[in-house]
Structure formats: structure tokens, C-alpha cells
């Protein structure tokens, strides 16, 4: 959060202490949240983040256990250590939340994301796009004479890198799923 421009002494006119005391070293964390798959549960999680001013960089959700009615929400968030600790505690007290795991600090995790890229172009640009897609092991899932749709999976950084390369080659549309993550080992 950007610091507000508050004049010296001005906060003595407020009912609150307006200075920001929080440490600034923010870091990205991937949280896995296991929840009951019931109406409104995603709204609860998202509402917690917006209501308390936390960041969401990416969020995915899907049912993972149909019989047990469980879903897994993977949230990538940013914050200082204290904020991340608060986020975990706040998530944990939502009634339909069963478990919260910080995959960044508690485990070594694999993180994967799927993305679809639509690239429009002709001639050399088109050939270059196809060549780079091969290097990135992206699949062509749709093609016309002047466009491709590539499907790529990988860590978010890999997808970012691919996007950077495609942009000058005619990238016109992107769809990304957000991160799915699991701890390595057992």
C-alpha cells in the first residue's frame, strides 16, 4: 500500500493514529485453503481479502473431493510476514475452512499454471511464434491462416516469459488459470 501524504502533526486531529507503522518487506506467498464446497464460501474468502485490505495476485478454486464436498482454493498473496500471519489466522477462523497451508514457508511446492495465448500474425512473425512455442513446449490448440492459440503450462514465471516473447509477435488475447500448487513429497 502506498503511504498516504499526511502532514506532520495532522494525525493529532484524527480519531486514529494515522501513521503507518508497518514494515515494508513484502513477499509473495502461496496459500492452499481447504474448504467445504458450499454456497458462498469463495465470497467469504474473497471478502476477507478485500475487507481487510490484503492483496490477491491469483486465485484458483475447484472441487477436489466430490463425496467429501471439499474444494481447494489456491491464493497467491503478497505481504509482510506479520500480514501473512494475519491472513492465515483470519482464513482459519472462517467456519467452512478446514485447513490453511502456506506452501511458501511450510513446504517446498510445485506451482503450475495453464494459459491460452492468441497470437495474430503472418510471415516471419508467425514462424517465429511457432518456433518459440516449441521451445516453451506450448501446444497449438487452434489455428487459422493468420492466428494461433497456444496452450502452455508451467510455473507462473515461465508463462510470464512466454507472454513477453509473444507480445511483439502479435499477442492479442490471454487467458490464465491462476496458480495450482502442491507440496512436494509426502
Amino acid at each position: 500500500m502506498a503511504a498516504l501524504n499526511i502532514g506532520t502533526g495532522a494525525s493529532s486531529h484524527s480519531a486514529y493514529d494515522l501513521r503507518d507503522h508497518h514494515e515494508t518487506a513484502e513477499r509473495s506467498h502461496t496459500l492452499a485453503v481447504i474448504v467445504d464446497n458450499e454456497a458462498g464460501v469463495l465470497a467469504r474468502v474473497i471478502g476477507l481479502f478485500s475487507g481487510r485490505g490484503y492483496n490477491i495476485d491469483s486465485l484458483t478454486v475447484a472441487e477436489i473431493d466430490h463425496a467429501g464436498h471439499r474444494s481447494r482454493i489456491t491464493v497467491v498473496t503478497r505481504g509482510t510476514e506479520a500480514v501473512i500471519e494475519q491472513i492465515r489466522a483470519q482464513l482459519s477462523r472462517i467456519v467452512p475452512v478446514h485447513q490453511v497451508t502456506d506452501l511458501t514457508t511450510e513446504a517446498v511446492a510445485v506451482e503450475r499454471e495453464l494459459a491460452l495465448f492468441k497470437v495474430q500474425g503472418k510471415g516471419d512473425a508467425r514462424i517465429e511464434a511457432l518456433r518459440l512455442a516449441e521451445i516453451f513446449r506450448a501446444n497449438v490448440v487452434d489455428s487459422t491462416l493468420e492466428s494461433f492459440v497456444f496452450e502452455i503450462t508451467g510455473a507462473p514465471e515461465k508463462i510470464d516469459a512466454f507472454a513477453d516473447l509473444m507480445r511483439p509477435l502479435g499477442l492479442i488475447d490471454v487467458a490464465r488459470t491462476g496458480v495450482a500448487a502442491l507440496a512436494r513429497g509426502v
Binding site: 458462498g40 465470497a43 472462517i94 467452512p96
Partner: peptide
């Protein structure tokens, strides 16, 4: 109502 009261209840149900 569950939407409006979600942030002001400990939990709610429809």
C-alpha cells in the same frame, strides 16, 4: 441478506 451480512456475522446460512 447472506451477501449483506457475510462480513458482519461470524457465519451465515441460506
Amino acid at each position: 441478506t447472506v451477501g449483506i451480512t457475510r462480513p458482519c456475522t461470524k457465519h451465515n446460512w441460506l
